[in-house]
């Protein structure tokens, strides 16, 4: 697979004022190139939840989006730590370590990671104290 479109966005820790802007741009761009609305919604939900995670849980990080020549779309969220202690726990609906600030913004319900996995066609998560990388792949139909 070759990447035909590549975009990179940088997200800063605790930058609630701009939370969701990267996801909004990504959604808009993918809409312009004609991605199916149902797939687009899944991508937007996963992207936004992951972007929020970079802001509330990580020391910031990057979002890399690739559109491949077979029409699949990959999103990679790479942060700078502190890592997830127990991935299995973090994947459990309802489990959350979010701060009061994050909760006051409407997040921290413990639905983020399980929801990201649910809407993605492929989901991979790798984590160490140096950082967490989440790789998501979306195809035209699920």
């Amino acid at each position: 697979m070759n990447s035909v479109i590549h975009e990179k966005y940088t997200v800063a820790q605790d930058d609630f004022a701009n939370a969701g802007k990267a996801s909004s741009h990504i959604k808009e761009h993918l809409k312009e190139i004609g991605v199916d609305p149902q797939v687009l919604r899944r991508i937007a939900v996963a992207c936004y939840e992951s972007e929020i995670n970079l802001i509330i849980h990580a020391y910031g990080g990057d979002i890399n989006m690739d559109v491949f020549d077979d029409g699949s779309i990959q999103l990679v969220f790479k942060d700078k730590g502190p890592g997830i202690d127990d991935i299995e726990k973090a994947m459990t609906p309802g489990f959350s370590t979010a701060s009061e600030k994050a909760r006051s913004m409407g997040f921290g319900a413990g639905m983020g990671l399980p929801n990201i996995k649910r809407v993605s066609d492929e989901f991979d998560i790798q984590s160490s104290p140096e950082g967490t990388t989440i790789t998501l792949l979306f195809r035209e139909s699920k």
């Binding site: 939370a19 969701g20 959604k27 936004y48 409407g106």
Partner: peptide
């Protein structure tokens, strides 16, 4: 319908259509 009143409500609605 929500009692939360901030930009994240708007972003959430945007992502969901």
């Amino acid at each position: 319908i929500t009692g939360l009143c901030n930009a994240q409500v708007l972003r959430t609605a945007e992502m969901l259509d």
